[in-house]
Amino acid sequence: MVMRLLLEPLPASWPELTPPRPTGLRGLLARLQEVADAVRQPGGLDDFEGRMRRAATQAIVREAYHQTVGEQEDEQRRPAAFAKAWKSHLAALLAQDTVKVSGRGTIAAAGRDTELAWKLYDAASRARADAIAHATATPSTFEFSCPPTSWYAFAIAAGDDHPMLGRVRYAICEPCGAGLLRKIDFSSDWRFCGLGTRALRELEARHPALTWYTTGQYESAQSFYERYRTDSSSPWTANQCPCPHFGGT
């Protein structure tokens, strides 16, 4: 939903809020549908100059977003702090006479719409917050079996219409009572949002009788697992081979 707002063509006029509208994720989806409908209406994409102006404005909001995402590994901002930093980057870009946008060149002040930029930021930042708030785990899907082990995966997604935010891959060995967390993968957009913790809790809830472990990880991931184990009610072990059936995976 965030990237739909930042990438797809914008309507000539921003849809006004018209209550009543469902709250939460359903309300957000209705709002996005209004924007999409406005684009498709006759005259929704008006003159060439107007389209270019909207596209330039959208590119600036997107540039501010990418700048903020690019800082995540170092800053590790939680959602509210991320939105604040994104807003700050956008304000800084809009204050410049010319803005250099990756892959687009330089955009002059006359070629953008500041009011639209802030409306777009507001809609996209709320979309991101709602995606995080409503993210849930999909059912586990079986990948393959190598008896006595079974291998699975599930995704963290924000509703049926939203691309997955992250993916979890794991394996279990019931005879040994062991679970192997193979990988949790979230893009930079969705890190430090509490989704990794949500994924591990879901993993434990699905297989409550197992003792879990994970193989060697990057330093940042390893520190996350160490912090999680401290607060987890499920048993985790630092032993790299508590079960011989997983082999060297």
Results as ranks from 00 to 15, higher is better:
residue 83 A to M: 03
residue 98 T to S: 14
residue 47 D to C: 05
residue 125 S to E: 12
residue 47 D to H: 06
residue 56 A to S: 11
residue 102 S to R: 15
residue 140 S to C: 12
residue 136 T to F: 10
residue 51 R to I: 05
residue 68 T to S: 02
residue 63 E to I: 05
residue 126 R to W: 11
residue 61 V to Y: 04
residue 82 F to Q: 08
residue 141 T to S: 15
residue 36 A to E: 14
residue 131 A to K: 11
residue 75 E to G: 02
residue 117 A to F: 02
residue 125 S to R: 08
residue 87 K to T: 15
residue 136 T to C: 12
residue 134 H to P: 08
residue 75 E to A: 13
residue 35 V to C: 05
residue 65 Y to P: 05
residue 42 P to E: 05
residue 113 D to E: 15
residue 108 A to T: 13
residue 100 K to L: 14
residue 35 V to Q: 12
residue 137 A to Q: 03
residue 82 F to C: 10
residue 57 T to Q: 02
residue 90 L to I: 09
residue 77 R to P: 00
residue 134 H to M: 06
residue 50 G to I: 00
residue 59 A to L: 11
residue 84 K to R: 13
residue 50 G to S: 06
residue 71 E to S: 01
residue 69 V to S: 12
residue 92 A to R: 11
residue 120 L to H: 02
residue 120 L to N: 01
residue 39 V to G: 01
residue 96 Q to S: 13
residue 79 P to Y: 00
residue 123 A to K: 04
residue 141 T to F: 11
residue 58 Q to G: 10
residue 41 Q to R: 10
residue 100 K to Y: 06
residue 89 H to T: 02
residue 52 M to C: 09
residue 83 A to E: 12
residue 45 L to H: 00
residue 139 P to T: 11
residue 72 Q to W: 04
residue 93 L to Q: 10
residue 49 E to W: 13
residue 55 A to W: 07
residue 139 P to G: 02
residue 79 P to K: 06
residue 132 I to P: 00
residue 131 A to L: 10
residue 109 A to H: 05
residue 90 L to T: 12
residue 51 R to Y: 06
residue 114 T to E: 15
residue 105 G to N: 04
residue 79 P to W: 04
residue 129 A to T: 11
residue 77 R to S: 03
residue 68 T to N: 03
residue 83 A to Y: 03
residue 52 M to F: 11
residue 84 K to D: 14
residue 105 G to D: 03
residue 114 T to C: 11
residue 44 G to P: 00
residue 55 A to Y: 04
residue 67 Q to H: 06
residue 89 H to G: 03
residue 40 R to T: 09
residue 100 K to W: 07
residue 113 D to L: 07
residue 118 W to H: 10
residue 88 S to A: 06
residue 109 A to G: 01
residue 53 R to Q: 10
residue 56 A to R: 12
residue 133 A to Q: 14
residue 135 A to C: 09
residue 50 G to H: 02
residue 104 R to F: 11
residue 60 I to T: 00
residue 112 R to N: 01
residue 111 G to F: 05
residue 43 G to Y: 00
residue 109 A to C: 01
residue 42 P to F: 04
residue 116 L to I: 02
residue 134 H to I: 01
residue 103 G to C: 04
residue 67 Q to Y: 03
residue 96 Q to R: 14
residue 94 L to V: 00
residue 97 D to L: 01
residue 38 A to K: 05
residue 100 K to Q: 15
residue 63 E to C: 08
residue 88 S to W: 08
residue 64 A to H: 00
residue 48 F to Y: 12
residue 126 R to S: 11
residue 74 D to N: 11
residue 56 A to K: 09
residue 112 R to D: 01
residue 81 A to L: 08
residue 74 D to E: 12
residue 58 Q to A: 09
residue 110 A to I: 11
residue 48 F to R: 15
residue 58 Q to M: 12
residue 43 G to V: 02
residue 52 M to A: 12
residue 130 D to M: 11
residue 50 G to A: 06
residue 128 R to A: 07
residue 36 A to S: 13
residue 81 A to N: 03
residue 53 R to S: 04
residue 79 P to H: 08
residue 114 T to V: 14
residue 101 V to Y: 02
residue 50 G to T: 07
residue 120 L to F: 08
residue 70 G to S: 04
residue 43 G to N: 00
residue 46 D to A: 09
residue 95 A to K: 06
residue 127 A to L: 07
